[in-house]
């Protein structure tokens, strides 16, 4: 594996399988044990550098690092492009001076983790925990892990991703990783919410959810912000959920063993109904659990595995 995890495209097929297998080992080593801690990263420092609020992702990384016995520092540097405050560079230099071995960064600007990794400001490993509308690679890994667990393998499986692809870092990372793993991915969204150039992505696209669902092995619903309707991406929340929401009728179109994913947080009643979100084929809560194993695997491979 590379020194950093910035994009799902950084993972070759072998890398991706290694991370998934390692995640499974992490699950085995901790599940059902009273003491869930492993000594692997004792004495190493992991910094969670969050320029944007995200309790879920930060907590998941924190728990992952702690289970590997790393020292964890949470560094919240909330700032906007308008009121920059301390610059990314100065924050990075501070963390470097404190001796961070790994920086897990969440940032509102696409490419900020890339800048951290390659500007020569710091030497530590950088893990992208979500940057702007670019990528969120550990989310894609945990989705792939969850899919593999339920479908046996991702290779050749038909995965449908529905919603605001344009603004979704989750969708970008998932398309790249799932394609690497051999899945057939179909993006479904209104044309306004598909990025220009999506025809060059390693996936199919469709504007019609019903026709895609009948063949899907899994469907991933993306969060859609209601405010997008004010920027004319769609006329109203009602119309959006009628055309692209996963309700009971659409759920019934899915093959019997298909599963439903959502990266959270959900807008119940918008992209997904409560009935579907809480059904026994929804693996949404399990995704959260798997997130910890996957992040343990990533930290382990970056900090202990790859450099020995």
């Amino acid at each position: 594996m590379k020194d950093h995890l910035l994009s799902a495209a950084d993972l070759s097929r072998d890398d991706a399988i290694l991370v998934l297998d390692t995640s499974a080992e992490m699950a085995q080593l901790t599940e059902g044990r009273s003491v869930k801690k492993l000594p692997t990263l004792r004495g190493r420092a992991v910094v969670n550098l969050f320029f944007e609020d995200s309790t879920r992702t930060r907590t998941s990384f924190e728990l992952a690092a702690k289970r590997l016995s790393a020292d964890v520092v949470n560094f919240s540097a909330k700032g906007s492009s308008v009121s920059k405050g301390e610059s990314l560079k100065d924050t990075a230099l501070t963390l470097e001076a404190m001796g961070a071995d790994c920086v897990v960064v969440r940032h509102w600007a696409s490419g900020a983790p890339h800048r951290l990794a390659y500007s020569g400001w710091i030497r530590s490993s950088v893990v992208n925990a979500g940057d702007g509308t670019h990528e969120h690679p550990t989310q894609a890994i945990l989705d792939a892990y969850t899919l593999r667990k339920h479908l046996g393998s991702v290779d050749g499986r038909r995965i449908t991703i529905v919603g605001d692809v344009l603004h979704s870092r989750v969708a970008r990372s998932n398309v790249l990783l799932l394609a690497t793993l051999g899945a057939e991915v179909t993006l479904v969204a209104p044309p306004t919410l598909l990025p220009v150039g999506v025809e060059h992505w390693p996936c199919q696209t469709s504007y019609d959810l019903d026709s895609v669902l009948v063949k899907a092995d899994a469907v991933m619903m993306l969060r859609v912000q209601r405010e997008r309707m004010n920027a004319a991406f769609f006329p109203s929340a009602r119309e959006y959920s009628r055309r692209y929401g996963l309700d009971a009728r659409r759920f019934a179109l899915l093959p019997d063993d298909a599963v439903v994913l959502h990266p959270g947080p959900m807008n119940r009643g918008m992209e997904i109904t409560a009935e579907v979100a809480d059904s026994d084929r929804s693996v949404i809560v399990e995704q959260v659990t798997n997130g910890v194993y996957v992040r343990m695997a990533v930290l382990y491979l970056l900090l202990a595995g790859g450099r020995e």
């Binding site: 696409s110 509308t133 670019h134 970008r172 220009v196 150039g197 999506v198 060059h200 992505w201």
Partner: peptide, 18 residues
């Protein structure tokens, strides 16, 4: 807008300038 709108901007997650 941050860069030329197109396939690359979509991939990089940078807002396009068409």
């Amino acid at each position: 807008a941050q860069m030329n709108e197109g396939e690359l901007a979509g991939r990089l997650g940078l807002r396009g300038w068409p």
